[in-house]
Amino acid sequence: MIEDLQRLENNALAELQEASNQEQILLIRTKYLGRKGLLTGQLRNIAQVPDEQRALFGKRCNEIKLFLTSRIEEELNKQSQNEKENKLLKEKIDVTLPGRAIKYGRIHPITQISNEICSIFSSFGFSIVEGPEIELDYYNFEALNIPKDHPARDMQDTFYIEENIVLRTHTSPVQVRVMEKVKPPVRILSPGKVYRRDSDVSHTPMFHQIEGLLVDEGITFGDLKGILTLFLKKIFGQETKIRFRPSFFPFTEPSAEVDICCVMCRGKGCRVCGQSGWLEILGSGMVDPAVFKYVKYNSEKYTGFAFGLGVERMAMLKYGISDIRLFYENDFRFLRQF
């Protein structure tokens, strides 16, 4: 009889092994453990078991029942786990399709460079200031020591609105406006749009300039060199070679043009630098006492320096853009690269 029990257990386990889904397992459960099940049947027959074996028979029956119950439970769990997983697998999506998030926009390269420059000078303690784009002749020229009928006016071909109203040719008028209101020390940076009558691959009639001014007691040409060297190294890298050479601007004296070693050919000479190995990058100089006179600063007490640069030119050199007009075509194939 005991042997029958053992066979029964073995059969049940073998069938469980074969079962591949929950239904089959449930059938096995009914077959062995159900009310009319085989094991239940055996138990029902316990009376026919000889006395000396009955205790053992009953014990085995219970053991097998417990064991099968737990095995079946185990199998059922396993099956339900499998089935859940199968269901998830059926929900599989194509993860390689592009995502649905909004594509991030781009900031115009001119703004990016301009912001970079402004933040460098902000860290030197410069305030960023703005002024009108359409200016009085007085602020754009006169107060910057560029009188009417002076040949220096040829340096900037001007758009006129009226005889005494111009599209500003540089952002220097902002400096004059600030100096009229603020006593030294003055440390300002004026970014913005400027306008000149010029149009070709390297000139657009509108472009962006950033001009800086620092006025205080004891400011020297050496300080101008120091600040601008530091700035250019921050923008173009520590190793950048820089040279200052004499030039002329009506509102500064002495005036210096600042060149950096050509970023394209590293000084060997190429088309971009006109074979010279150098690129003009900044105009600068010590503020001319005549300008201080216009804003009623005492030039015996105060000295200062000013500088200016073209943002487009910086951007062209930094990104390797050869046609300045691209900045204003707003072609997406251009804009999305920045």
Partner: peptide, 9 residues
């Protein structure tokens, strides 16, 4: 998702 443009004044 907007990109900045700069046009002539």
């Amino acid at each position: 998702g907007f990109s900045e443009v700069i046009n002539y004044s």
